[in-house]
């Protein structure tokens, strides 16, 4: 065990995968000179050379298209798109080519690409550098969507993503880059599609992911002091999501609260709540709820941005309201 930052943990995972498999390579902007926006590629170009850690032009369509073509021809590219917002510049290639190639070509080919698109609000990055777009990709058949919340997960899940034979949208959170935690450097890849119960509880099930996990844990601590026992589930993989873990918890608690930083309307919370409502209606003690950002572009000014964020207080208030509601 060693203590690494979330960015360092991802770097270690990539380094290990590149040493293991010469067909793994990386492409994106500023990987060599800068080592990535958060140092998550630091030193990799020096170690593996410019043909395996490729500094590209600012050409997102072709960064993505080339990765897909190369993935079809025997390599395993890891694509860095810097911000999820820029992933939209490559949306055509991701949606129309990467996600569909295997299916529409009748299983002749796979697209084993990792598509890194960091999400979320951080330090006043404003409307075009702060979005959480995970629901966009979850909607597309053919894509796997992963959102790690800890350094250990960013190590073990990135390794799994590199080894996945289908395209993986890998969404790190910009606010987590510097968060430190224990990492087992020799950890095996974590299975994709498995949630983690990060705090056990009886009264309400809180389902969340990415940077909201720590906020939900803080809320759960406060809830305990108010006599409400909250279970917190970190989904880790958003598609496919771990329905078994969520359902098992909701069956016990009878209450579901989904928390995400993405806009609430049309967010992935809506899907989770719908599935639970459709399949566990008779187990519910109260109406399931979602917390997410208001449907506004993320504003720059600090007090305005703060109003878009879900806080531990918001979660506590929602959970207490649900716990006190009569079935």
């Amino acid at each position: 065990m060693t203590v690494l930052s979330y960015a360092e943990a991802a770097r270690l995972a990539l380094l290990q995968e590149m040493e293991r498999d010469p067909n793994v390579w990386v492409l994106g902007e500023d990987l060599g000179p800068e080592g990535g926006v958060a140092g998550q590629y630091a030193g990799l170009q020096q170690r593996f050379g410019k043909s395996r850690v490729v500094d590209t032009p600012i050409s997102e369509s072709t960064i993505m298209g080339a990765a897909i073509g190369a993935a079809m021809c025997g390599t395993r590219p890891v694509v860095e798109l810097r911000y999820a917002d820029f992933g939209l510049c490559a949306a055509d290639e991701i949606v129309n080519q990467a996600a569909k190639a295997r299916y529409m070509l009748g299983g002749q080919v796979r697209v084993p690409a990792v598509i890194r698109q960091p999400i979320g609000m951080r330090d006043g990055m404003a409307a075009q550098h702060s979005q959480s777009t995970e629901a966009w990709w979850i909607h597309i058949p053919g894509l796997v969507v992963v959102a790690p919340s800890t350094p250990a997960d960013n190590h073990a899940l990135l390794k799994a993503a590199v080894r996945c034979d289908d395209p993986v949208i890998y969404m790190e959170h910009k606010e987590l880059w510097t968060v430190r935690g224990e990492v087992d450097e020799s950890a095996a890849p974590a299975p994709l599609g498995n949630a983690a119960v990060v705090r056990e509880g009886r009264d309400v099930t809180i389902v969340t992911w990415s940077s909201m996990v720590s906020v939900c844990l803080a809320a759960a601590q406060a809830l305990a002091e108010s006599g409400v026992s909250a279970e917190v589930i970190d989904l880790r993989t958003l598609w496919p999501w771990d329905k078994d873990a969520v359902f098992a918890s909701v069956v016990r608690s009878g209450r579901l609260l989904v928390v995400h930083q993405a806009v609430r309307v049309g967010g992935f919370g809506a899907e989770i709540v719908s599935e639970v409502a459709e399949q566990l209606f008779d187990k519910l003690k109260t109406a399931p709820r979602r917390l997410g950002a208001p449907r506004v572009p993320v504003p720059y000014s600090e007090p305005l941005e703060m109003r878009c964020r879900i806080t531990a207080d918001d979660i506590v208030a929602a959970a207490i309201g649900m716990a006190r509601a009569e079935a």
């Binding site: 067909n23 072709t62 298209g65 073509g69 190369a70 993935a71 021809c73 055509d92 129309n96």
Partner: peptide, 21 residues
């Protein structure tokens, strides 16, 4: 390919794979 010019981006990627391998 059903999207104009997308096949061209796949082609340069295929070439990159050829070169890498």
């Amino acid at each position: 390919n059903g999207v104009v010019a997308d096949g061209v981006t796949l082609a340069v990627g295929a070439a990159q794979a050829v070169k890498l391998r």
